[in-house]
Design a protein around this nucleic acid. Structure first.
Length: 143
DNA sequence: GCCAACGTTGGC
DNA sequence: GCCAACGTTGGC
């Protein structure tokens, strides 16, 4: 079971909207590395939902409701070539205490997390150890 | 195949 | 609003 972190600008798509919609397609990823991670996701795996730009904090936990399929928001061009994938995410619950980027940066043991090392990547794996630490920091009760 | 120019993301 | 990081594009 892998864990993940996905980013969204709340202006474009927020945690609030994720909760209201329940299950939501995670579309619009146009980066090869991020797309590779999307394709590696299995149903039931969980991800931290991170607000970039505004908030800059982990606000909730989602889980994969449907594994990778062709991104319907992609313009496939005249030849109809599909390059990008998306998954469906389901809201599991909010972080009791959202974990901010500043806190993550200041926490020993989290220096190597992808969120910091590759700040522009919008989908990334989270190690078991980092997942456990962040759950603890955020007061997340479950797995 | 190299590399400069340019665009985008995201933190500050 | 600025800038660093970095991916993409296009000329050669």
């Amino acid at each position: 079971m892998a864990q993940w972190l996905v980013k969204s600008e709340p202006d474009a798509f927020s945690w609030q909207q994720q909760v209201e919609n329940g299950v939501e397609p995670w579309t619009g990823v146009r980066n090869a590395q991020a797309a590779k991670f999307l394709r590696a996701m299995a149903v039931g795996e969980r991800a931290f939902f991170y607000h970039s730009n505004i908030g800059k904090e982990i606000v909730g936990v989602v889980e994969v409701a449907r594994a990778a399929y062709p991104d319907p928001t992609e313009d496939t061009g005249p030849k109809g070539i599909q390059r990008w994938a998306c998954v469906d995410m389901r809201a599991v619950g909010p972080m009791p205490r959202p974990v901010t980027l500043a806190t993550i940066k200041a926490t020993p043991g989290l220096e190597e997390i992808g969120l910091i090392r590759q700040s522009r990547l919008s989908v990334m794996p989270v190690s078991d150890a980092h997942w456990a630490m962040l759950c603890e920091m955020g007061g997340w009760p479950g797995r």
